[in-house]
Computed example of a mutant assay.
Amino acid sequence: MTTIKLRWAEGADKTLPLPAYESTGAAGADLRANLPGGAITLAPGARALISTGLHMAIPQGFEVQVRPRSGLALKNGITVINSPGTIDSDYRGVVGVILGNMGDENFTVTHGMRIAQMVVAPVVQTGFDLVEQMDETTRGAGGFGSTGAA
């Protein structure tokens, strides 16, 4: 099992739960808004960086992907703008989540609210070679919708 070391940021509310898997089959652990200074209201179309109050030490060879919570997305139109957001293994700053309100009404992010989920994933780095010619495939240069899949 991979372990991610966590440290509270200065000024964070240290009584909030740490990221946690809410079911035995969950792929993502819930992240919470750490807003001891007060709630943040997002108007329709607005976005804001919401602090989790945590620093993470992610092992080399892994990343943390930050993804929307399906319930917030369906019920309120709240999403992670750069989904999936990537937290690299060498980042040590405070983890924040860029939330956006795609809904029709104001949405208030409250202190301690579950705002996103994090998925730990392995990372493979590769080399890059510039070539004069590419190998041929059946699909070729066919792009969006070219496979006939609706």
Rank of each mutant, 00 (worst) to 15 (best):
L99H: 02
T86V: 14
T86F: 05
I50W: 04
P68S: 05
Q65P: 01
G100P: 02
Q117V: 13
V109D: 11
I98V: 14
G93K: 10
S70W: 05
T52W: 12
S70C: 13
I58R: 01
G112N: 05
S89A: 15
K75S: 09
V66F: 02
Q65N: 06
Q60Y: 13
V94R: 10
V95T: 10
Q65I: 04
F62I: 00
T52M: 06
I115Y: 03
N82T: 06
G100R: 08
F62G: 01
N106M: 08
R69I: 06
I115E: 05
A116I: 07
S83A: 15
T86D: 09
G85V: 13
I78Y: 05
G103Q: 06
P84W: 08
V80F: 07
T86R: 07
S51H: 03
Y91C: 01
L99I: 05
M102Q: 15
A57M: 13
R114C: 07
S83W: 11
T52E: 07
R69V: 00
H55P: 01
R114M: 07
L49W: 15
P84Q: 10
Q60C: 13
G77I: 01
M113H: 15
L99S: 09
V97Q: 13
M102N: 13
S70T: 14
N82W: 15
L99E: 01
V97M: 05
